[in-house]
Design a binder for these strands. Structure first.
Lengths: 218, 218
DNA sequence: GTCTATACTGAGATAGAC
DNA sequence: GTCTATCTCAGTATAGAC
């Protein structure tokens, strides 16, 4: 018998490297969760360390500062959002793709995600604005969304009286809209209903007689 | 000649009392300004003291803690907002009054005001939720706005598919919408244009073919 | 009642053993 | 690379002179 050997244990160094990367991902996940709960200013490195289950000092082997850590979390979020955009069927209308992006974003937030824009903290804003990787990703995402907005306008689906920049920020702002949190805290509406009403209000506004948006479910 | 004496200097105690009140108002104003710039979590009592031009220790003669001081600022803001509502002509439609309130709120924010809801800080939220005077005023204001919402729905001016609570929070959320800050930072739009687009988007949504809101100026 | 000075706490970051 | 222990600094709140 010449049994083929089971796959060898990976070389020690590469094993350690992968352990390192797994831990780093765990740190990013924990930071993301805590950011969603506490916000940037009251987020403590101690809390992150406990959440991951490592010592605070070890965090600094992975990220040189709190700002760098939070910046990495934000970059990862923006990148994922852009991936979500790129995976949409190109045959859909720009309007439908914007609505799908909005729903995806709201679902993420309700599932414990953080907003894309540092709306909650001036300190975080200042920190990110001097973090090139974040600015770069933000620019990339904004250009992708901006393209959709222009196309949707060309296709006659968005109000031409509204500036492109205004519409872009309006989408970002829906991702950090506190209405989500307050309605959920109220407990009277299901998550799905909250998302539906947010999408309806975003595209059709609050007033009566609004045109029904094509993707509306209820 | 029996010249009538000039009005006497007020009695010493009452003079001191009024000085005290003037200073207290100055403290509230300074705190309000700094809250708008820094947010609650990074607001330092040192900063407030410098802004007013008094010593940090003196602040504690007026307010027993940072939380109490910020709470007083928020109560004053809610009270003013309700006064604004009460001064509206009762002959206006509920829809027009809601729009006027929204414009007033946005103007205030652009002039350096703070949002009505503690959306930016979990710590502030916790603090205010155990501050009866704030809860009381918030309830009063919410009932006033809620009345208008119900009336506007009865008059057929608001979308009946949207829950009353959703619409209420949507109004509050517009007061803390970061779109304001980002558009202003961009510098490409005038304040008046920003407000007009916010109001248009709030009532009519982003999509094309929206009904024009009666109060729209541009 | 306001000032200066200070006690106390919490949090970011670092040092040094293993 | 991870741990424990510590440094440093900022910020809330208080004490004591005037």
């Amino acid at each position: 018998m010449t049994p083929t050997p089971a796959p060898a244990v990976p070389a020690r160094k590469s094993f350690r490297e992968s352990q390192f990367e797994i831990r780093e991902a765990a740190i990013l996940d924990a930071t993301h969760r805590l950011l969603a709960r506490h916000g940037y200013d009251t987020l403590a490195m101690d809390d992150i360390a406990s959440e991951v289950g490592i010592a605070k000092g070890s965090l600094y082997r992975h990220f040189e500062s709190k700002d760098a850590l939070v910046g990495a979390v934000m970059v990862r979020l923006l990148r994922r959002t852009r991936e979500c955009l790129e995976q949409q069927p190109a045959t859909d209308s720009a309007r439908a793709r914007l609505e799908a992006l909005l729903r995806w974003t709201l679902d993420e937030r309700l599932a414990g995600g953080i907003p894309h824009l540092p709306a909650t903290s001036q300190a975080l804003r200042d920190s990110l604005m001097s973090f090139p990787a974040y600015l770069d990703e933000l620019l990339n995402l904004s250009e992708s969304i901006g393209d959709l907005i222009r196309r949707a306008k060309d296709e006659g689906d968005l109000n031409p009286e509204l500036d492109d920049a205004f519409i872009l920020y309006a989408f970002y702002a829906r991702a950090c809209d506190p209405t989500l949190d307050f309605l959920r805290a109220g407990g009277a509406m299901s998550d799905a209903r909250i998302v539906d009403q947010m999408v309806l209000a975003c595209f059709s506004g609050l007033q009566a007689g609004a045109l029904r948006s094509p993707g509306e479910t209820s």
